[in-house]
Write a protein that binds this DNA or RNA. Structure first.
Lengths: 329, 329
DNA sequence: AACGTTCAACTGAACGTTCAAAGCGGGAGA
DNA sequence: TCTCCCGCTTTGAACGTTCAGTTGAACGTT
């Protein structure tokens, strides 16, 4: 591999001049510049990233811990976000380094201590996420996708689940539904509680009394959705719409309804959340709320770089609007 | 951040002794070792990875290019493999660096030229994959998950799709089916052709004439599966089993059958391939072929490290056995 | 001619680590 | 007593880059 010294020798200049041609071309005379560029081309020189990292005390790497997903679990948002993140990071000279989340849920602090990464992006945050607390305490640069409730204590980018819930309610009522039900996660999840609260607020805004909305709480599985649908349909007063906190539950709802001979989208509308890849392929295609993952990723990267620039600046939480995707249900 | 020099000063030894305590403890007297270890603990010293990388001319990073997946497409194998890979890599002191596949499908050679990564892992390879050709030509260390047809020209780990196809045929015939059909990908895909060939061979082994097997060719989409199912069922002689080259197509098959009032698993069995996360959650749960992704990842990492050790060693292709998962279809 | 300014290019130093080689006591053998 | 060896430790050097500071030449002003 050619080094900057080789290029300098070939072009008859010093190593710093070569460096300048690459990093501050205006400091070099046009004539010299051309000679150096020729040498670079001839030798196919590429600056050694390890050396640059070492010199700059920056790894240009962004750590993302992968939740340990069982072979049959789905991580519909995580994977797509990681794709988007690696794309946006690449635009800014950074790359995404994946590492498995350690057993106890702690972030691998050692990756930062050894300067393997410049910081972290946390995904799937929960209320008072211990990972965020630990990182903030150690003053490690990081940004979360998702709030933790500790506003102002770290940078975060999130999608406004409350607004998403509102939009769902508005759409359902606008299409004439008056007896909506909601299948939520168990109480305590920040994400889930916001989506539900938004939905209830949206109902109220549209003139449906929130206290009339039947709310069921289930875990995030297809089977849990099936169960919820059966519960909702067996009563004497069936809802005319079922909104849910996730697509996975919605899949179960649709299936549970079908097992009772009811096709989603007619008497009973069904709405999911996340617009996971399968939503469009369901039968019937699922109405759901899409998160602007590309934009989230863009801002996460921007926030992260800003944090590196100014470690002591104030923490910022950005909120992005989700977008309702109306399909057949 | 404490450096090795700080530790050395505190323990009253030279920097090399500290290095030895960490990398070759047997060279250091027990007494000194203890003193140094104390200093390390006190100062919370961690060797700087950038410096190590620079010194060793190794980034300890493994590049994986992410196919650009549309927001509604699914990459069921890729994502799970990447998870497994990052886990296995971490065990060997390596990490996975993600980068977006460039527009023209070429691997980002520059990541290697700049020594940002030590090499690549290629996923979703195709016959005579241009990425593999390019990397081999440049003598870049890499391992593919999936064969390319160019055996011996690069390291590869693959799952035996032929054997998978055979297993499917064996199971179907053993359960009494005599008129199986197969929905394949368009001819030319190495993966697809092997799975189909295996299926036909398996039929022959079990006493069903392969030339009687109806083979349809479709793209890899849910809608393509629906279409295939309709085509297969509308003829006068319906198959009693439909095997497919992928779970996604199988999803479509099940749906297409249902649209004609036929439930998969009874008169007509359906079998997918890949055991993607949704397979177990389908209605009815899908019988499919599981790829041992953890084991594939483990071997890919091992092969890769072996290749780094010995750049000129012979190329090896490893083949792993898939495993049929019989569910309700 | 002396001096200040500007532009272009160069030199020294440093980032933190580890390999290779050298130093240094002390004990065994000649 | 001298030599050799052994175990432990130190020193020199290098990996490739870029920041900060310096040199040198050209040019205009006084």
């Amino acid at each position: 591999m050619a080094t900057i010294i080789d290029v300098a020798a070939r072009a008859g200049v010093s190593r710093q001049t070569v460096s300048n041609v690459l990093n501050a071309p205006d400091r070099v005379s046009p004539d010299t510049r051309r000679r150096v560029e020729d040498a670079i081309t001839t030798l196919n020189y590429r600056p050694n990233r390890s050396a640059q990292n070492f010199r700059a005390q920056r790894s240009h790497l962004l750590g993302v811990d992968l939740a340990t997903v069982g072979p049959h679990e789905v991580a519909p948002v995580l994977d797509r976000f990681v794709h988007a993140l690696s794309q946006q990071a690449a635009r800014r000279g950074y790359h995404v380094l994946l590492f498995p989340r350690s057993g106890d849920g702690a972030v691998h602090l050692s990756l930062y201590e050894t300067r393997t990464v410049d910081g972290f992006v946390l995904v799937d945050t929960e209320r008072d996420d211990p990972r965020a607390t630990a990182l903030a305490e150690q003053r490690v640069p990081f940004v979360t996708f998702g709030r933790t409730g500790a506003t102002g204590e770290h940078d975060a980018v999130d999608v406004d689940g409350f607004a998403g819930g509102q939009a769902v309610a508005a759409e359902l009522v606008a299409s004439g539904r008056r007896r909506p039900a909601y299948v939520a996660w168990p109480e305590g999840s920040l994400v889930g509680d916001l989506r539900l609260a938004g939905f209830l607020a949206g109902c109220e805004d549209a003139g449906v009394d929130p206290s009339d909305v039947r709310v069921l709480r289930r875990l995030n599985g297809v089977e849990d959705g099936v169960d919820a649908a059966v519960t909702l349909l067996e009563g004497s007063e069936r809802p005319d719409a079922i909104a849910t906190v996730s697509d996975l539950i919605a899949v179960g709802i649709i299936r549970g309804m079908r097992s009772l001979g009811v096709r989603a989208g007619n008497e009973i509308r069904v709405v999911g959340f996340d617009d996971s890849p399968l939503a469009a392929h369901l039968d019937p295609p699922l109405t759901t709320v899409r998160q602007p993952l590309d934009e989230v990723a863009r801002r996460v990267v921007a926030r992260f770089l800003a944090r590196l620039e100014d470690p002591d600046g104030p923490s910022v939480t950005e909120l992005l609007e989700p977008c309702l995707v109306v399909r057949r249900t």
